[in-house]
Computed example of a mutant assay.
Amino acid sequence: MTVESQVNSIENDIFSTLGDVTIPQAPPEFRSGFIGIIGRPNVGKSTLMNYLVGQKIAITSPVAQTTRNRLRGILTTPEAQMIFVDTPGIHKPHHQLGEVLVQNAKIAIESVDVVLFVVDGTSACGAGDRYIFELLYRSQTPVILGLNKIDGQPPNPEKIDESYIQLTENTPWQTVKFSAKTGEGLPHLQQILIENLAPGPYYYPPDLVTDQPERFIMGELIREQILLLTREEVPHSVAIAIDKVEETPSLTRVIATINVERDSQKGILIGKGGSMLKSVGSAAREQIQKLIAGKVYLELFVKVQPKWRHSRIRLAELGYRVEE
């Protein structure tokens, strides 16, 4: 698929999703476009997008490889509309799910207008960063290098910074230092991103912050709590299916299934006397209530799906497909 056809596909998705919603005409000199956030796992891509759009739409955790889907966050200012595409961290895949996620991240590089290559500014450039650099260097898409986590840099970070400067010295790439946690440097980053976008229309209504349906974000908020509460015991073997959402004027009832690969993982998730499942459900319910601004009843079930990460059929059933 060519870049042009990919862009047309994205635009078709947008307008079919928005339906009859009226999008205003952009003022003169208005800029717009898609910005791919690319980088290794756990460099702060999702935290960055959440901060920029001003709302939590992407889950975050200390566990690497948290993001699984290409999630769009939308920031509209008087000058521009920036559609951020948060991608899975690019890493060496160990199963079918990993291959799908990395392939989707690579496709994103060629289907956006600008790439923001995010690196961890608390450590020197490594092999993973150099691998992504080679992918981006061969691409025709403009790239901005972003050194994140400057709030955690040592007192004299010159050696760390220099390792990335040397990496990009033969490129036209701009470099920006910032902290997605504190917001330091983000106004400057935002301005550089706008300058790299071409004049264009509103793709979305100005008050929209994501194009993802609520059901998807509900599932991600449940998965986030599992990542936070179970740490390394279970996280990457989990997929969430939202089975039913029933809305009344006073309550939203959500029924969801947590899919795992082994009986032992099911036992960990349920916990003694159902304690872990109750903790996950309680924390996720609080986050979902913030999302929908209303009262939520959340019911969770746990189901064993052996080796689902290795099966294309199971991956498709759970919503993981190679983007086209």
Rank of each mutant, 00 (worst) to 15 (best):
R68Q: 12
R68M: 05
N69P: 06
N69L: 11
R70V: 15
R70A: 04
L71D: 15
L71M: 15
L71K: 15
G73M: 06
G73W: 02
G73R: 03
G73Q: 14
I74R: 02
T77V: 10
T77G: 08
P78S: 03
P78F: 05
E79A: 14
A80Q: 10
A80N: 14
Q81Y: 09
Q81H: 08
M82A: 08
I83T: 04
I83K: 01
F84C: 06
V85S: 06
D86W: 00
P88M: 06
G89L: 02
G89F: 01
I90Q: 01
H91V: 07
H91K: 06
K92T: 15
P93Y: 05
P93R: 03
P93D: 11
H94G: 12
H94C: 09
H94E: 09
H95E: 14
Q96K: 10
Q96S: 14
L97V: 02
G98F: 04
G98N: 15
G98R: 05
L101R: 08
L101S: 02
A105H: 00
I107Q: 15
A108Y: 02
I109Q: 03
I109E: 05
E110G: 07
V112P: 10
V112A: 14
D113V: 12
D113Q: 07
V114E: 00
V114Y: 08
V114H: 04
V115A: 05
V115S: 00
L116C: 06
L116V: 07
V118N: 00
V118G: 04
V118Q: 07
V118Y: 00
D120S: 02
D120A: 01
D120N: 03
T122A: 12
A124G: 15
A124K: 13
C125P: 01
G126K: 13
A127E: 13
A127W: 13
G128Q: 05
R130G: 10
Y131G: 14
E134V: 08
L135W: 15
L136Q: 04
L136F: 04
L136P: 08
Y137W: 15
S139H: 04
S139F: 03
T141M: 11
P142D: 09
P142N: 06
V143D: 00
V143K: 00
V143P: 02
V143I: 11
I144L: 10
I144D: 04
G146A: 11
G146Y: 04
L147V: 00
L147R: 01
K149P: 06
K149V: 03
I150V: 05
I150N: 01
D151F: 00
D151M: 05
Q153D: 15
Q153Y: 10
E158W: 12
K159E: 12
D161A: 10
D161P: 12
D161W: 12
D161F: 10
E162L: 14
E162W: 09
S163H: 07
S163Q: 14
I165E: 09
Q166H: 13
T168H: 10
E169A: 14
E169L: 12
N170V: 12
N170C: 13
N170Y: 09
T171K: 14
P172N: 11
P172A: 03
P172K: 10
T175D: 11
T175L: 08
K177G: 14
K177T: 09
K177A: 10
K177Q: 07
F178E: 06
F178D: 13
S179C: 03
A180K: 11
A180I: 07
K181V: 13
T182S: 10
G183D: 11
G183P: 15
G183Q: 04
